[in-house]
C-alpha cells in the first residue's frame, strides 16, 4: 500500500477500511434515552442510533453512551462507527453541531457516491436527540425541529420512490 491513503482498492480509504473492520460502539442500548432510525432498506442502508444521556459536573446534558445498529455497505458501517466516536462524551449542543464533513474528514474521505452515508449518520444522531427531547418533553429549538422535519420529508420521498418495490 502506497503512502496515498486516499485510495484503497480504488474505492475506500485505509481509514474507512480499518473502521469497517473494527467498528466501535455497535449493538443496542437497552432502555436508551433516545433512538434515531434513518435510512431505507430498499436502498440498502438502514441506521439505528441509540443514546444514553446524563448530566456532567456543570449540569450540562451529555451523550454518556451511544451505540449503533446498521444494515448497509462499508461506508454506512464506517460512518456509523465514526459518528458514535465523534458524539460520545459531547454535550448535546456540541453533538448537534457535528456535520457530514466532520465524519468524512475523520474517515480520510469517502467516495462521492457514498456521501449520503455520512449524511445518514448525522441524521441518525439528530433524530436520536430529537427523540430524547420529545420523550422528555424538553424544549425543541426551531433549528432542530426544522432538521427533523427535513429528515422525515426526505424519508417519505424515498419511501414513495421505492413504493413499487416494497
Amino acid at each position: 500500500m502506497k503512502k496515498n491513503n486516499n485510495i484503497c482498492g480504488g474505492l475506500y480509504t485505509q481509514k474507512v477500511l480499518e473502521t469497517f473492520k473494527n467498528p466501535h460502539n455497535y449493538g443496542k442500548i437497552k432502555n436508551a434515552d433516545g433512538v434515531g432510525k434513518v435510512g431505507n432498506i430498499v436502498c440498502g442502508d438502514v441506521m439505528w442510533l441509540y443514546i444514553k444521556v446524563e448530566k456532567n459536573k456543570k449540569g450540562e446534558e451529555i451523550i454518556k453512551d451511544i451505540k449503533f445498529e446498521t444494515f448497509g455497505c462499508v461506508a454506512a458501517i464506517s460512518t456509523s462507527s465514526t459518528i458514535t466516536d465523534l458524539a460520545k462524551g459531547k454535550t448535546i449542543s456540541q453533538a448537534l453541531k457535528i456535520e457530514k464533513n466532520d465524519v468524512i474528514k475523520k474517515l480520510g474521505g469517502l467516495p462521492f457516491i457514498k456521501y449520503h452515508c455520512s449524511v445518514l449518520a448525522v441524521d441518525a444522531l439528530i433524530e436520536a436527540v430529537y427523540d430524547y427531547f420529545l420523550k422528555n418533553k424538553k424544549k425543541i429549538s426551531q433549528d432542530l425541529q426544522k432538521k427533523h422535519e427535513k429528515i422525515q420529508k426526505e424519508k417519505e420521498i424515498i419511501e414513495k420512490r421505492y413504493e413499487k418495490w416494497a
Binding site: F20, K21, G44, F71, G72
Partner: peptide, 29 residues
Amino acid sequence: FIEGESLVMQLDLHGIECSTGSACSSVKL
C-alpha cells in the same frame, strides 16, 4: 439481515475475493 458489499469487503479483508451480484454492479447502489 446482511448487505452484500459489506460481506464482500469483509471476505476481501480475509483474503477471499468474490463479488455481490456482478462485478459491474459494484459501483451502483
